[in-house]
Simulated assay, not measured.
Amino acid sequence: MRRSFRVLLCLAATAVGLTTLSAPANAAAHNYVALGDSYSSGVGTGGTYSGGGCKRSTNAYPQLWANTHAPASFNFAACSGATTTDVLNSQLGSLTARTTLVTISIGGNDAGFVDVITTCTLGSDSTCVNRVEQGKTFARNTLPARLDNVYSAIRQRSPSARVVVLGYPRFYKVPGSCNVGLSDTKRSAINSGADVLAQVTAQRAAAAGFTFVDIRGAWTGHEICSGDWWLNSLTWPVEESYHPNKNGQARGYLPALNAVTG
């Protein structure tokens, strides 16, 4: 009888242990920090922004993810206009050893995103193509070391965190039939810049052991000049231009993030 009782106790303890080990990961256990630039802060979605010049929106994918997953903590540190230097100097303080999930989009401003769009909007086809090529050269030759510095710093501050790097979409459907003032030559050039930026970012994220989310596939059919735009074209206020709108954040970025976080 005593032996049978001891066996039952052992089996019960084993069952409890197996239940504990096999319990699914709960998003509520996450300590989530959202880093990055305006594509992460939510510029382009309209409405009221918080964070002063950082322009953080309740319609941005980090906030939407936090709303639906209810993490243990959420720190929304992404800031409009941020470069890799800004992340290193102003955003990494949000990370701790207890951080379990980090998302980031960064690199577009380093590569001269605003100047590329301005040049292509105001200049000739050849001027646009040349400016995009300059940006692609920067992305291939200079940006990798900057991304490495950011990714290394994230890992040092949050050694156990899952880090998800989200890329940028292609901007235009080519050929496309809409009145946005840009030729197919310019649209193709801008898209080629987005492709190079995605390739470089994917390589450096992989080298750091991070998860890269290539947003271009999800955006196919939703570019400017498509039937269902997830990006603003030139609009007012101007700073909203060429950024994801509400659908871009909720139907583009959020599902892509959900796909890799469960």
Rank of each mutant, 00 (worst) to 15 (best):
R3Q: 12
S4W: 11
L9K: 07
L9P: 06
A12H: 07
G17V: 14
L21W: 13
A23K: 14
A25Y: 12
A27S: 14
A28H: 15
A34W: 01
T48M: 13
C54E: 12
K55H: 08
N59Y: 15
W65L: 14
P71E: 06
F76M: 07
C79P: 04
G81S: 05
G81Y: 04
T83L: 09
T84D: 01
T85P: 07
S94L: 03
S94R: 05
S94Q: 04
L95F: 03
R98H: 12
L101D: 00
I106V: 15
I106S: 10
I106K: 10
V116R: 04
T119R: 05
T127I: 08
T127D: 00
V129F: 05
N130W: 09
T137K: 13
F138K: 02
R140P: 07
N141A: 12
T142N: 12
L143S: 02
P144F: 04
Y151F: 14
Y151N: 01
Y151G: 01
R157P: 07
S160F: 08
V163T: 15
V164M: 00
L166H: 03
Y168M: 02
F171T: 03
K173N: 06
P175Y: 13
G176V: 08
K186E: 02
G193Q: 13
G193L: 14
A194N: 10
D195P: 00
A198R: 09
Q199H: 09
A206D: 10
G217C: 08
G217D: 13
G217H: 11
A218S: 14
E223Y: 11
E223L: 09
S226Q: 12
N232G: 01
T235Q: 08
P237H: 15
P237T: 14
P237A: 14
E240T: 06
E240Q: 15
S241N: 07
P244Q: 13
P244M: 12
N245K: 07
K246G: 10
N247G: 03
Q249R: 07
A250I: 03
L254Q: 13
T261R: 06
G262Q: 11
